[in-house]
């Protein structure tokens, strides 16, 4: 499949994530939308990695070009997990105080 398809898919997934973050009011949903953004970039990284690998294969059969893209994906997943653990803790902390995960409560700070 041409690389353009992958780029289009990743950009669409990413945009769904962005729109979700900007329009939804529930902290958990916003959180899932951010995860969607990260996973869209993971998909894109893997696709590019494969593309560069395929291009380099023609010149050298034992090439390792393109490995770093897949390595990056693992780092993104680890960092995303770390972020999730902190983020969920923050949401739980907020829930204990206001018994809601609605971010409309966030308007208290304005003024």
């Amino acid at each position: 499949m041409p690389i353009q398809y992958y780029i289009a898919l990743a950009v669409i997934l990413f945009s769904i994530g962005v729109v979700g973050v900007l329009t939804r009011r529930n902290a958990i949903i916003i959180f899932m939308c951010i995860e969607l953004m990260l996973n869209a970039t993971n998909l894109l990284l893997v696709a590019f990695s494969k593309m560069h690998h395929g291009a380099a294969l023609a010149a050298d059969a034992a090439t390792k070009v393109g490995v770093e893209g897949q390595l990056f994906v693992f780092f993104v997943m680890v960092v995303a997990a770390a972020e999730v653990s902190v983020g969920l803790a923050i949401i739980v902390m907020m829930y204990r105080n206001v018994h809601s995960v609605d971010i409309n409560f966030l308007n208290r700070l304005k003024n």
């Binding site: 953004m37 990260l38 972020e83 983020g87 923050i90 902390m93 208290r108």
Partner: peptide, 17 residues
């Protein structure tokens, strides 16, 4: 609490970008 949630959401949103 609100500051933490806001900071976290904005931070990870910009990480995605």
């Amino acid at each position: 609490n609100e500051a933490a949630l806001k900071y976290f959401l904005m931070g990870s949103f910009s990480t995605g970008i």
